[in-house]
Design a protein around this nucleic acid. Structure first.
Lengths: 109, 109
DNA sequence: AATATTCATCGTATTTTTGCGATGAATTTA
DNA sequence: TAAATTCATCGCAAAAATACGATGAATATT
């Protein structure tokens, strides 16, 4: 119990769910927004823009990276992150492809 | 601790995060897919398509409804659900609007 | 060399999520 | 009226997520 039964769902369902889950926190949305706005890859400045502890932000960055939504490189003593636009596009495409409305829509709800 | 600090983020960030979180589980993705494929609003047949207990599916439906991604009506002894295409569109738009790449992309990551 | 900065990781506490069986209400069917 | 069906909710257990401070490693600065 308490464990997600991922093995039981399709590849695509899990992929979309994982990407969505990574986006499913306002802090991570804010981080991605920040990364999208700066052309230069930002590092710890992200921490300054968020009302969260450094360790917490670091954890969120780790999650985004694990989901493939961002990439990061070490620049001396600093860590530099930026958005993975390919993954963002992938998310949009999955969203588009998975939920196509069928031809005749006569829902009563 | 353990509580999401929603009050600290912007309306838009929270809205997108909430929609994404609702989508952040393969079972809920599967449910939405099923609802998208059937023009007739489906009810408990969803349970048959998923390898989860009825109570678990019911809970996922509740979450999707709370997020506004689906709507449900009671049809006698049955419950009828269908996708809220407006919310799906809203999710896509938020995704599009929040993460616009800035003009000059020279990321080194 | 000593100090400072940056940041990932660890440990911990709390809350939320996930999942299931049991129960019960509402409606159908027999 | 009695039995069956549908399904939401409750209660519980286990796991994951959220958040923070402390620590330490790596690099910069003085």
């Amino acid at each position: 119990m308490g464990t997600r039964k991922t093995a039981v769902f399709s590849e695509t369902e899990n992929e979309l769910a994982d990407l969505a889950k990574a986006l499913g926190h306002p802090a991570r949305v804010a981080i991605l927004k920040e990364l999208a706005n700066r052309n230069v890859c930002v590092c710890g400045e992200i921490v300054d823009t968020l009302p969260l502890a450094q360790s917490t932000v670091s954890q969120h960055l780790k999650e985004l990276k694990a989901a493939g939504l961002i990439s990061g490189t070490v620049e001396g003593v600093k860590s530099c992150y930026c958005i993975n636009w390919t993954a963002m596009e992938r998310l949009k495409n999955l969203l588009e492809d998975c939920f196509k409305p069928c031809s005749d829509q006569n829902c009563a709800c």
